[in-house]
Amino acid sequence: MSIKTILIDDEPKAIAILKNKIERLCPDLEIVATIEKPALAFDIINELQPQLVFIDIAMPGMSGFDVLEQFKKPQFEIIFATAFDQYALDAIKQCAIGYLVKPIDNEDLVEAVTNATTNIEQKNALVKNTQLLENINQENFQKKKIVIPSTDGLEFVKVKSITHCEGVDGYTKIHFTNRKPILSSSSIGHFKKLLSHPDFYHVHKSYVANTNHIIKYLNDGYVTLTGDVTIPVARAKRAEFLEKFRSA
């Protein structure tokens, strides 16, 4: 399988390094263009119709997100690259889009390309890219959406509808206010990172709770959530938990 690929970065050295790594480690990728001026990216991508685009986030004049926003229906798979931008990384992770942190590690590159190849075969780039742009422009965390891999594909759910996440034998059951739970093959640790925000609290090794849905703390070490659901608070977490909500 030959995957038409474009590299976008304002630094020629960064492009040269990435190009060399791809040629050595990712033989299925065919680099059809490299772009150092992000303002040219829209026309070149439309002309060459790549399946995969590597793009730097922080570029002068036009960020990687600015480039993406020019497309009404961006159907190419994306792997973002960044030196460090936690806000950007959080938004990218929430939508299951690939990313690499500079300097780019060889194993991380191969893993990102492997995931991108799978996504290209499943043809789900459009919905992920559309959701990313919506999240980037949405400052309120509760109004954002996250992607949850399920048996049927990818499900985008509103953060505010999640009451809590429950770790079950290496899987995670996500509970909602308005629908039946979803069972994800990802561990509770994955959702701890994905929902890393003050609105979510890791009350127990097996539970992450949306604090907006906590109704009551019970003296025996449990909290009641929306829907009259009760989950435990770990003994070691109780003092910290109570302090958090007393000062809220």
Results as ranks from 00 to 15, higher is better:
residue 128 K to M: 09
residue 186 S to L: 15
residue 171 Y to L: 14
residue 108 D to G: 08
residue 93 K to F: 03
residue 138 Q to V: 00
residue 171 Y to Q: 13
residue 187 S to M: 09
residue 174 I to A: 09
residue 139 E to N: 14
residue 124 N to M: 02
residue 127 V to N: 04
residue 131 Q to G: 01
residue 112 A to F: 03
residue 153 G to P: 07
residue 85 D to K: 03
residue 179 R to M: 10
residue 190 H to G: 03
residue 84 F to Y: 15
residue 177 T to C: 14
residue 78 I to Y: 06
residue 72 K to E: 15
residue 169 D to P: 05
residue 134 E to D: 07
residue 86 Q to L: 06
residue 109 L to Y: 05
residue 152 D to R: 13
residue 134 E to K: 11
residue 152 D to K: 15
residue 121 E to Y: 11
residue 99 Y to K: 06
residue 80 F to H: 01
residue 158 K to A: 15
residue 116 A to D: 03
residue 78 I to V: 15
residue 142 Q to H: 03
residue 188 I to G: 06
residue 99 Y to N: 06
residue 190 H to F: 14
residue 169 D to L: 14
residue 107 E to G: 04
residue 181 P to I: 12
residue 177 T to S: 15
residue 88 A to H: 04
residue 172 T to V: 10
residue 142 Q to A: 14
residue 179 R to F: 05
residue 172 T to Q: 09
residue 79 I to A: 08
residue 120 I to F: 08
residue 145 K to A: 12
residue 133 L to A: 05
residue 143 K to I: 02
residue 136 I to C: 02
residue 127 V to Q: 09
residue 129 N to S: 06
residue 151 T to P: 01
residue 176 F to H: 08
residue 91 A to V: 02
residue 135 N to R: 00
residue 111 E to S: 14
residue 139 E to W: 06
residue 79 I to L: 11
residue 139 E to T: 12
residue 178 N to T: 12
residue 155 E to H: 06
residue 131 Q to M: 13
residue 86 Q to R: 12
residue 88 A to Y: 05
residue 77 E to V: 09
residue 169 D to G: 04
residue 140 N to K: 13
residue 181 P to H: 12
residue 101 V to A: 04
residue 74 P to E: 11
residue 71 F to Q: 09
residue 82 T to V: 08
residue 162 I to D: 03
residue 157 V to T: 05
residue 150 S to C: 15
residue 176 F to C: 12
residue 189 G to F: 01
residue 139 E to D: 13
residue 129 N to D: 04
residue 185 S to C: 12
residue 82 T to H: 01
residue 73 K to Y: 13
residue 112 A to Y: 00
residue 169 D to K: 15
residue 146 I to D: 01
residue 155 E to T: 08
residue 107 E to C: 03
residue 182 I to Q: 05
residue 90 D to R: 06
residue 145 K to Y: 10
residue 125 A to M: 00
residue 184 S to D: 04
residue 174 I to D: 04
residue 166 E to H: 13
residue 154 L to P: 02
residue 143 K to C: 03
residue 78 I to M: 15
residue 117 T to Y: 07
residue 74 P to C: 14
residue 83 A to F: 07
residue 126 L to V: 01
residue 149 P to T: 04
residue 162 I to M: 12
residue 167 G to F: 08
residue 138 Q to G: 01
residue 158 K to R: 15
residue 190 H to A: 07
residue 170 G to A: 09
residue 171 Y to G: 03
residue 189 G to P: 02
residue 163 T to H: 10
residue 135 N to F: 05
residue 115 N to W: 08
residue 150 S to W: 02
residue 169 D to Q: 14
residue 149 P to D: 10
residue 118 T to W: 08
residue 117 T to D: 04
residue 136 I to G: 00
residue 154 L to W: 03
residue 118 T to P: 00
residue 100 L to V: 08
residue 89 L to P: 01
residue 105 D to T: 05
residue 113 V to H: 05
residue 148 I to C: 11
residue 77 E to G: 03
residue 112 A to T: 01
residue 154 L to S: 11
residue 175 H to R: 11
residue 122 Q to E: 13
residue 145 K to H: 13
residue 175 H to V: 14
residue 190 H to C: 01
residue 94 Q to D: 02
residue 162 I to P: 00
residue 96 A to Y: 10
residue 80 F to I: 04
